[in-house]
Simulated assay, not measured.
Amino acid sequence: MNAAGDRGPQAGPDEAVVDLLGVMACGELLAFERLAHDAALAPTIEDKAELARMAVAEFTHFTTLREHLVKIGADPAAAMAPFVEPLGDFHRRTAASNWLEGLVKAFVGDGLAADFYREISGYLDPATAGLVQEVLADSGHSAFAVEHVRAAIDADPRVAGPLALWGRRLMGEALTQAQRVAGEREALAALIVGGSGPDRPGIDLNEIGAMLGRLTAAHSERMAALGLEA
Protein backbone atom coordinates (compact mmCIF):
# COMPACT_ATOMS: atom_id res chain seq x y z
CA MET A 1 0.00 0.00 0.00
CA ASN A 2 1.29 3.47 -0.82
CA ALA A 3 2.20 5.80 2.00
CA ALA A 4 -0.26 8.52 2.87
CA GLY A 5 -0.22 11.20 0.24
CA ASP A 6 1.59 8.92 -2.25
CA ARG A 7 -0.61 8.65 -5.33
CA GLY A 8 1.66 6.18 -7.06
CA PRO A 9 3.07 6.56 -10.57
CA GLN A 10 1.50 9.23 -12.71
CA ALA A 11 -0.38 8.01 -15.74
CA GLY A 12 1.13 9.03 -19.05
CA PRO A 13 -0.73 11.07 -21.64
CA ASP A 14 -3.55 9.39 -23.55
CA GLU A 15 -1.96 7.76 -26.61
CA ALA A 16 -4.94 8.46 -28.85
CA VAL A 17 -4.98 12.15 -27.85
CA VAL A 18 -1.23 12.42 -28.44
CA ASP A 19 -1.68 10.87 -31.89
CA LEU A 20 -4.54 13.22 -32.74
CA LEU A 21 -2.69 16.34 -31.60
CA GLY A 22 0.48 15.06 -33.26
CA VAL A 23 -1.15 14.62 -36.66
CA MET A 24 -2.86 17.99 -36.33
CA ALA A 25 0.40 19.73 -35.37
CA CYS A 26 2.19 18.12 -38.28
CA GLY A 27 -0.63 19.18 -40.60
CA GLU A 28 -0.53 22.78 -39.39
CA LEU A 29 3.24 22.97 -39.87
CA LEU A 30 3.01 21.58 -43.39
CA ALA A 31 0.10 23.95 -44.14
CA PHE A 32 2.31 26.85 -43.07
CA GLU A 33 5.04 25.68 -45.46
CA ARG A 34 2.56 25.15 -48.29
CA LEU A 35 0.91 28.55 -47.95
CA ALA A 36 4.27 30.29 -47.78
CA HIS A 37 5.24 28.47 -50.97
CA ASP A 38 1.93 29.16 -52.72
CA ALA A 39 2.33 32.87 -51.99
CA ALA A 40 4.94 32.86 -54.75
CA LEU A 41 2.20 31.88 -57.22
CA ALA A 42 -0.07 34.77 -56.24
CA PRO A 43 -0.67 37.28 -59.04
CA THR A 44 -0.61 40.47 -56.95
CA ILE A 45 1.28 41.78 -53.94
CA GLU A 46 -2.00 42.01 -52.01
CA ASP A 47 -2.67 38.32 -52.66
CA LYS A 48 0.86 37.41 -51.60
CA ALA A 49 0.38 39.33 -48.36
CA GLU A 50 -2.94 37.62 -47.67
CA LEU A 51 -1.46 34.15 -48.12
CA ALA A 52 1.46 35.14 -45.91
CA ARG A 53 -1.04 36.19 -43.22
CA MET A 54 -2.77 32.83 -43.49
CA ALA A 55 0.59 31.06 -43.23
CA VAL A 56 1.33 32.92 -40.01
CA ALA A 57 -2.05 31.84 -38.62
CA GLU A 58 -1.25 28.21 -39.42
CA PHE A 59 2.09 28.49 -37.62
CA THR A 60 0.34 29.99 -34.62
CA HIS A 61 -1.98 26.98 -34.56
CA PHE A 62 1.05 24.69 -34.74
CA THR A 63 2.63 26.47 -31.79
CA THR A 64 -0.58 26.13 -29.76
CA LEU A 65 -0.70 22.38 -30.39
CA ARG A 66 3.00 21.93 -29.65
CA GLU A 67 2.67 23.76 -26.34
CA HIS A 68 -0.34 21.65 -25.34
CA LEU A 69 1.54 18.44 -26.12
CA VAL A 70 4.31 19.58 -23.77
CA LYS A 71 1.70 20.48 -21.16
CA ILE A 72 0.25 16.97 -21.13
CA GLY A 73 3.69 15.39 -20.89
CA ALA A 74 4.24 14.39 -24.51
CA ASP A 75 7.25 15.05 -26.74
CA PRO A 76 5.94 17.14 -29.69
CA ALA A 77 8.61 15.91 -32.12
CA ALA A 78 7.90 12.28 -31.26
CA ALA A 79 4.14 12.88 -31.49
CA MET A 80 4.47 14.34 -34.99
CA ALA A 81 7.10 11.92 -36.30
CA PRO A 82 4.73 9.12 -37.43
CA PHE A 83 2.78 11.55 -39.60
CA VAL A 84 5.58 13.37 -41.39
CA GLU A 85 5.83 10.79 -44.17
CA PRO A 86 2.13 10.20 -44.91
CA LEU A 87 1.19 13.89 -44.76
CA GLY A 88 4.27 14.86 -46.73
CA ASP A 89 3.37 12.26 -49.34
CA PHE A 90 -0.15 13.67 -49.56
CA HIS A 91 1.17 17.17 -50.19
CA ARG A 92 3.67 15.93 -52.76
CA ARG A 93 0.90 14.09 -54.60
CA THR A 94 -1.36 17.13 -54.52
CA ALA A 95 1.16 19.91 -55.12
CA ALA A 96 -0.61 22.85 -56.77
CA SER A 97 0.67 23.70 -60.22
CA ASN A 98 -0.90 27.15 -60.28
CA TRP A 99 -2.51 29.82 -58.14
CA LEU A 100 -6.09 28.59 -58.50
CA GLU A 101 -5.24 24.98 -57.67
CA GLY A 102 -3.53 26.23 -54.53
CA LEU A 103 -6.65 28.13 -53.48
CA VAL A 104 -8.92 25.14 -54.10
CA LYS A 105 -6.58 22.92 -52.10
CA ALA A 106 -6.49 25.37 -49.18
CA PHE A 107 -10.29 25.58 -49.14
CA VAL A 108 -11.36 22.06 -50.05
CA GLY A 109 -8.47 19.97 -48.75
CA ASP A 110 -7.96 21.81 -45.48
CA GLY A 111 -11.72 22.05 -45.02
CA LEU A 112 -12.10 18.29 -45.30
CA ALA A 113 -9.36 17.71 -42.72
CA ALA A 114 -10.96 20.25 -40.38
CA ASP A 115 -14.36 18.56 -40.70
CA PHE A 116 -12.78 15.22 -39.85
CA TYR A 117 -11.03 16.55 -36.75
CA ARG A 118 -14.21 18.28 -35.59
CA GLU A 119 -16.08 15.00 -35.86
CA ILE A 120 -13.50 13.28 -33.66
CA SER A 121 -13.42 16.15 -31.16
CA GLY A 122 -16.89 15.20 -30.01
CA TYR A 123 -15.38 12.10 -28.38
CA LEU A 124 -12.60 13.88 -26.51
CA ASP A 125 -12.43 15.40 -23.07
CA PRO A 126 -13.73 19.01 -22.95
CA ALA A 127 -10.29 20.62 -22.66
CA THR A 128 -8.86 18.77 -25.66
CA ALA A 129 -12.05 19.26 -27.66
CA GLY A 130 -11.89 23.00 -26.97
CA LEU A 131 -8.28 23.11 -28.13
CA VAL A 132 -9.16 21.31 -31.35
CA GLN A 133 -12.00 23.75 -32.06
CA GLU A 134 -9.69 26.71 -31.38
CA VAL A 135 -7.02 25.45 -33.76
CA LEU A 136 -9.55 24.70 -36.50
CA ALA A 137 -10.96 28.23 -36.50
CA ASP A 138 -11.07 29.68 -40.01
CA SER A 139 -8.14 32.04 -40.53
CA GLY A 140 -9.63 33.61 -43.64
CA HIS A 141 -9.09 30.80 -46.15
CA SER A 142 -12.74 30.35 -47.00
CA ALA A 143 -13.85 33.81 -48.08
CA PHE A 144 -10.54 34.51 -49.82
CA ALA A 145 -10.60 31.27 -51.84
CA VAL A 146 -14.26 31.56 -52.79
CA GLU A 147 -13.91 35.17 -53.93
CA HIS A 148 -10.84 34.55 -56.11
CA VAL A 149 -11.89 31.21 -57.61
CA ARG A 150 -15.35 32.52 -58.52
CA ALA A 151 -13.80 35.64 -60.04
CA ALA A 152 -11.47 33.48 -62.14
CA ILE A 153 -14.39 31.36 -63.38
CA ASP A 154 -16.39 34.46 -64.25
CA ALA A 155 -13.42 35.78 -66.22
CA ASP A 156 -12.82 32.45 -68.00
CA PRO A 157 -15.44 29.69 -67.54
CA ARG A 158 -13.04 27.17 -69.09
CA VAL A 159 -11.06 26.95 -65.84
CA ALA A 160 -14.04 25.43 -63.99
CA GLY A 161 -13.71 21.95 -65.51
CA PRO A 162 -10.05 21.33 -64.58
CA LEU A 163 -10.61 22.80 -61.11
CA ALA A 164 -13.60 20.50 -60.52
CA LEU A 165 -11.44 17.50 -61.43
CA TRP A 166 -8.77 18.83 -59.08
CA GLY A 167 -11.27 19.10 -56.24
CA ARG A 168 -12.42 15.52 -56.75
CA ARG A 169 -8.81 14.35 -56.77
CA LEU A 170 -8.17 16.14 -53.49
CA MET A 171 -11.13 14.37 -51.90
CA GLY A 172 -9.89 10.97 -53.02
CA GLU A 173 -6.31 11.58 -51.94
CA ALA A 174 -7.43 12.91 -48.55
CA LEU A 175 -9.55 9.83 -47.83
CA THR A 176 -6.68 7.55 -48.88
CA GLN A 177 -4.32 9.44 -46.60
CA ALA A 178 -6.75 9.24 -43.65
CA GLN A 179 -7.10 5.47 -44.09
CA ARG A 180 -3.33 5.09 -44.22
CA VAL A 181 -2.76 7.10 -41.06
CA ALA A 182 -5.51 5.31 -39.13
CA GLY A 183 -4.25 1.93 -40.30
CA GLU A 184 -0.77 2.62 -38.99
CA ARG A 185 -1.79 4.12 -35.62
CA GLU A 186 -3.79 1.68 -33.53
CA ALA A 187 -4.76 4.13 -30.79
CA LEU A 188 -5.96 6.73 -33.29
CA ALA A 189 -7.90 4.11 -35.23
CA ALA A 190 -9.57 2.99 -31.99
CA LEU A 191 -10.57 6.58 -31.25
CA ILE A 192 -12.13 6.96 -34.70
CA VAL A 193 -13.87 3.58 -34.87
CA GLY A 194 -14.88 2.83 -31.31
CA GLY A 195 -13.15 5.05 -28.82
CA SER A 196 -10.62 4.05 -26.21
CA GLY A 197 -10.54 4.44 -22.49
CA PRO A 198 -13.38 4.09 -19.95
CA ASP A 199 -14.55 7.69 -20.24
CA ARG A 200 -14.72 7.92 -24.03
CA PRO A 201 -18.00 6.80 -25.59
CA GLY A 202 -16.57 6.25 -29.06
CA ILE A 203 -18.60 5.65 -32.20
CA ASP A 204 -19.85 2.48 -33.88
CA LEU A 205 -19.48 1.39 -37.49
CA ASN A 206 -22.88 2.76 -38.40
CA GLU A 207 -21.78 6.15 -37.10
CA ILE A 208 -18.59 5.87 -39.18
CA GLY A 209 -20.78 5.55 -42.28
CA ALA A 210 -22.86 8.53 -41.22
CA MET A 211 -19.72 10.55 -40.55
CA LEU A 212 -18.36 9.79 -44.03
CA GLY A 213 -21.71 10.90 -45.42
CA ARG A 214 -21.43 14.21 -43.57
CA LEU A 215 -17.86 14.71 -44.78
CA THR A 216 -18.89 14.04 -48.37
CA ALA A 217 -21.85 16.42 -48.09
CA ALA A 218 -19.63 19.17 -46.66
CA HIS A 219 -17.16 18.63 -49.51
CA SER A 220 -19.96 19.01 -52.06
CA GLU A 221 -21.08 22.23 -50.36
CA ARG A 222 -17.56 23.67 -50.54
CA MET A 223 -17.25 22.77 -54.21
CA ALA A 224 -20.59 24.46 -54.88
CA ALA A 225 -19.45 27.54 -53.00
CA LEU A 226 -16.50 27.74 -55.38
CA GLY A 227 -18.82 27.39 -58.37
CA LEU A 228 -17.56 23.87 -59.12
CA GLU A 229 -19.26 20.50 -59.53
CA ALA A 230 -18.35 17.93 -56.85
Rank of each mutant, 00 (worst) to 15 (best):
L51K: 01
A52K: 05
G172D: 02
S139F: 14
K105G: 02
G195Q: 03
V132P: 04
D89N: 13
F62W: 14
G102M: 03
R53P: 06
W166I: 00
E58N: 06
T216F: 07
V84P: 01
Q133L: 13
P86S: 02
E119A: 09
E85K: 13
E15H: 12
H61Q: 08
V132S: 04
R118A: 10
G195V: 01
L228G: 04
G102V: 00
P157C: 00
R185S: 08
R169F: 12
A129Q: 09
E186A: 10
G202D: 00
L212V: 14
F32Q: 10
N2Q: 08
M54A: 06
R93Y: 12
V84C: 00
L41M: 12
V18T: 05
A210T: 06
L41P: 04
V108H: 00
W99T: 00
P198N: 06
F90G: 07
A95C: 05
D154M: 02
A155N: 04
M1K: 07
G209A: 14
M54E: 13
L20D: 08
H219D: 12
V17W: 07
L100S: 06
H141N: 15
P198Q: 05
T60H: 12
R34N: 14
A36G: 04
V17S: 10
H37C: 02
G197L: 06
H148Y: 09
S97L: 12
P43R: 09
L20F: 07
L69I: 05
S97K: 14
C26T: 03
L163T: 01
P86Y: 03
L51W: 06
A81E: 15
L41S: 10
A113I: 05
A189S: 12
N2F: 07
P43Q: 13
